[in-house]
Write a protein that binds this DNA or RNA. Structure first.
Lengths: 110, 110
DNA sequence: AGGTGATATAAGCTATCGCTAATATATATG
DNA sequence: CATATATATTAGCGATAGCTTATATCACCT
């Protein structure tokens, strides 16, 4: 699954917000998400799998519990794509600035 | 439609790449996308509407043509969310660093 | 080993997304 | 005005994402 697809789901975004602040056991995540979105443990677990598979979350076993924390890896592609795009339009913008500057110089008296 | 939803489609991402480099008429976009993805003018037009509505693209009329260019507005929310998340885990990381530093000081001889 | 709590997986249903085909709108041009 | 060109909109269809329910797995405790 593509990185942006992963982030397009509100439950997954909220989950990332939670585990970005501190490592949380699956159960703790389920509690919050169940309260906020009204979905089942199963549904949350499925989301967690997607986050793992896409490199947005890491798991650590602690007895029977699975402790989730954020994994920056997944965000790299996303940020890279955004940065690349920004570079494109910044170059364009700079060209525009130069154009305006030139216009000012030749348009104004001095 | 939510910003990340908009970016989750490959056709829309490609379209943004195109119009980020330079303003393009709908027809020109259709040509590229049609070639690369094999979809119809109608499909592209529907994607363009979504990009407009979500603040990712601007339109300028030029006779019968519609010229599309990128609109940074749509990206603000996306970037803000990513930045917020990064702040979360950076704070966490910094706390970890301090912890390690403290460990080194008390662990090593001097 | 059996029981219990914590989490993951599988099967199946439904809503939604993105497509096509057809049609509508808008602007130039003869 | 008629026709052509450029783009947008609508209706309808198929695929897929995300949910529920049920079941499986795994670790701990007695």
């Amino acid at each position: 699954m593509q990185a942006f697809d992963v982030l397009s789901d509100p439950v997954r975004r909220r989950t990332l917000e939670l585990i970005a602040q501190k490592e949380l056991a699956s159960g703790a995540i389920v509690n919050v998400i169940e309260a906020e979105f009204g979905i089942s443990q199963s549904a949350v677990s499925q989301h967690l799998r997607i986050l793992r598979d896409a490199g947005f979350a890491r798991v650590r076993k602690e007895g029977a519990k699975r402790c989730y924390s954020i994994d920056p890896t997944g965000f790299e592609d996303v940020q890279a794509w955004l940065d690349q795009l920004r570079r494109y339009w910044c170059v364009k913008m700079e060209a525009l600035m130069i154009e305006i500057e030139r216009g000012k110089r030749s348009g104004k008296k001095s």
